[in-house]
Design a protein around this nucleic acid. Structure first.
Lengths: 253, 253
DNA sequence: ACCGAATATGCCCGATTATGCCCGAAATGT
DNA sequence: ACATTTCGGGCATAATCGGGCATATTCGGT
């Protein structure tokens, strides 16, 4: 039986019975309990059921469908991997900031399940993390930019200054080794700059297509970044160059 | 039976019976009383019921933070009418504020299609209005409260002070002619108070079931309200009383 | 078709959680 | 005031979990 098939089967049974136990499922589906646990972990992570000690329960009625479309534009596999790799730098109790970008959204989905405070200007990230009980979400507020579904403007920028950020995870339209990070819109650039100024550490999430690209507004030097997380498609010449700027880097496998 | 399942069952019985005893629950659910005690301790800690000696009781009706979808469903016809009536007070180019309540959400849906600036602390209102190109949405930001899907906290409160609000539309858990408006949670109460202080005019949207109800935290007098919009089910004695306080009122037909 | 990588699965073991039992202390009812 | 019920904490036990490791299967690229 295929793993996916098993997942469906589990969801079916959870939905009908109201609750299932790991041992039950293991017997019923002829797999080890470890496998069932991994299945439940995955399904819980996807928000399709709720894991409990000893088994799982269906979602409470009132949270089954989030009103907004949780449609996700193409998460290229690279972005997923970069997000997962970045998630490993998040420690328990950390105060982290996430910007409004699709790569960072992937990180949000991969965040570990422990107490965290997450500051974000992205509506989508906020909505996503609302279903994670151990995560405290804080939003900058500000003018709502429809295109990026995020808050921008001087209001958002000044709101930031009252906060502390441990680790900032951001992305940018372009990453040039000489000119640094760039964005297409000034308002987004300014906000990212502000976030970097306030953060103890800055992690740049950039898939290989971002390197060498210069967008319109430059907002930071590469040397202001503490670590770059990218994917295997990156030009091999880039990593030594980062090293030369004392920027750590990691390739998400 | 899973622990979580038992918790659900306990909440069910408490909710339906009004009160339960530890011994009863232990017998019904086939576990030791110690287990039930631990369950009750946990549920009480989560604010889902109130422990008493020998058993537990449900939360008083008016201090329950009902999830948004549920609130929206309740009295929806009246709320729709009230929202539509309130929308007629919104003029072109107005700067209005909307709080996080289901009635005001109905107003948001009924907003006229002309240029507007809308300040809100509700994620759902912000999401809804994102699809309205002529409406500029501004959010307070702050800590995200999951139950109400809205931003609260001192952060949100202070963010407000930098803004101007023309007309504020809000609702509240309870409206008492003598004691005024009340909310179940302090953080919501404080924010609403702050909004009222900053607004030129305050419109209270309250269906008839709100009148005479006293929740936990009072945050404003009726005389601070400029206009009350309610429905036909309201006690006829209420309107003259409002008049006596120089509060205008309207019944949404 | 072949090989290395990614994925899925199973097994083992120390850590965590859930539960039940016991007993002295606190609360309750008569 | 006294008998009874209920509570809370300490302890023991069993179920469950999570992570590390090994093996098998599938996938992807040549």
């Amino acid at each position: 039986m295929l793993a996916r098939q098993r997942h469906q089967e589990i969801l079916n049974r959870v939905g009908r019975a109201g609750a299932v136990r790991v041992a039950e499922l293991a017997r019923w589906l002829n797999v080890a309990e470890e496998t069932i646990r991994r299945d439940l972990e995955k399904l819980d992570g996807e928000g399709k059921l709720i894991r409990t000690h000893g088994g799982a329960m269906p979602l409470p009625e009132d949270r089954r469908e989030v009103p907004f479309d949780v449609r996700r534009a193409k998460h290229s596999a690279e972005k997923e991997r970069i997000g997962a790799a970045a998630a490993r730098f998040v420690g328990e109790g950390d105060i982290i900031a996430l910007d409004a970008s699709s790569t960072v959204y992937c990180l949000a989905r991969a965040l570990p399940d422990w107490p965290l405070t997450v500051l974000t200007n992205s509506m989508e990230v906020a909505t996503l993390l609302m279903s994670r009980p151990r995560i405290q979400v804080v939003s900058t507020g500000g003018m709502l930019d429809v295109a990026s579904q995020s808050f921008v403007g001087s209001f958002a920028e000044e709101a930031l200054s009252r906060l502390h950020i441990g680790k900032l995870f951001l992305s940018s339209k372009g990453v040039d080794l000489v000119r640094g990070l760039s964005e297409a819109a000034d308002e987004h650039a300014r906000l990212k700059r502000r976030m970097m100024d306030l953060a103890d550490e800055t992690y740049l999430l950039a898939d290989h297509s971002k390197f060498g690209v210069k967008s319109v507004v430059f907002f930071a030097d590469l040397k202001d970044v503490d670590m770059v997380i990218t994917d295997r498609g990156v030009d091999p010449a880039v990593l030594p160059e980062l090293d030369r700027h004392h920027v750590r880097s990691e390739i998400a496998e």
